[in-house]
């Protein structure tokens, strides 16, 4: 993961164009009028891919010590997994009765 060979500006521009291509793919998927859940899943997967590329290359995590990567990702994943658990639980609120 950690490597001292940083990319050239030309490579960064290439990555930027690649990210814009993913955005174009997102727009094309949107215009297909997919069901909401399918579209949400596809868009989240593509956005996560974009974010991963941005973190690794633009934010230089690829060139830092691997321990930085292993500190950041599990922490964020841990929060996301907990959000997955706690948010559906919040919907119980709608079936609760107000107590006098």
């Amino acid at each position: 993961m950690s490597s001292n060979r940083e990319l050239t500006m030309r490579s960064y521009v290439g990555i930027g164009i690649g990210l814009m291509a993913i955005v174009g793919l997102e727009v094309i998927l949107t215009l297909q009028h997919l069901p909401v859940r399918t579209l949400l899943t596809c868009l989240l997967c593509l956005a996560s891919l974009e974010a991963f590329v941005a973190v690794m290359y633009f934010m230089h995590v690829k060139y830092e010590q691997p321990i930085l990567f292993w500190t950041i990702y599990p922490a964020v994943l841990f929060v996301l997994i907990f959000l997955c658990y706690f948010f559906p639980d919040a919907f119980r609120m709608f079936s609760m009765r107000l107590l006098k």
Binding site: L19, V23, E26, V27, L29, T30, L31, V36, L39, L40, L43, L44, L46, A47, E50, A51, A54, V55, F58, M59
Partner: peptide, 23 residues
């Protein structure tokens, strides 16, 4: 720069979820 890239990264989620999902 790190902060600025993070702002860019967040937009990668905000744009598809807030704009494309509501087209």
């Amino acid at each position: 720069g790190l902060y600025w890239h993070f702002v860019d990264l967040v937009w990668m989620f905000v744009f598809p979820l807030m704009y494309l999902m509501n087209a």
